[in-house]
Amino acid sequence: MKTLDLVLVALFAGLVIVLGLLPPVPLGFIPVPITLQTLGVMLAGVILGGRRGALACLLVVLLVALGLPILAGGRGGLGVFAGPTAGFLLGWVPGALIAGLIAERVAAPADGAIRQTAAFLAAAVVGGIVVVYAVGIPWLAAAAHIGLGKAAAGSLAFVPGDIVKAVVAAVVARGVHRAYPVLPARAP
């Protein structure tokens, strides 16, 4: 890994932390205000690519474990991993990995604005939502001793906000990619 890769990984870990420090955004049509932290996870994947995006999220997870209150709402420490929703945090790592791998393969630099944004959106939805929930929901079901169905139902309230974040991530990734591409190019 080159030094620039290391710096980019640290940079996006920092971005995920800063997005967690910003106040939650209230959206009229969703009951819970959304925090922007998972937006950072999606951005790490689709802007840096799979490997570096996953390492950035792993770095955030490590900093939480070291005892820094860097999650949205000032949470942190090992207690977070003992809670029943820890899977939604650990799921960031494979989530950013999958989002990045998809973005590397689907978002060709020559694509037009709409096609490329759609590719980034697909990457953000699959990696940042499907994969994260695929880790978080079974974890919640096991830790809380409730069935998969009930764990999934309890997590549904966050899906609309996550979809909004995936759209924002896709549009931002397109803008960044046009101005300053760092996503590793890869033939589909």
């Binding site: 080159k2 030094t3 620039l4 290391l6 710096v7 980019l8 940079l11 971005l15 955004v25 922007l36 937006l39 951005l43 802007i47 924002v168 549009v171 931002v172 803008g175 960044v176 101005a179 300053y180 760092v182």
Partner: peptide, 25 residues
């Protein structure tokens, strides 16, 4: 709006990252 802020924010930091990496090297 997150949309208006995030693109310049990320691009500015990406540019800085290259200088920092060069300084570390």
């Amino acid at each position: 709006s997150p949309l208006a802020i995030l693109v310049p924010l990320v691009v500015r930091n990406l540019k800085a990252a290259e200088d920092i990496a060069a300084a570390i090297d």
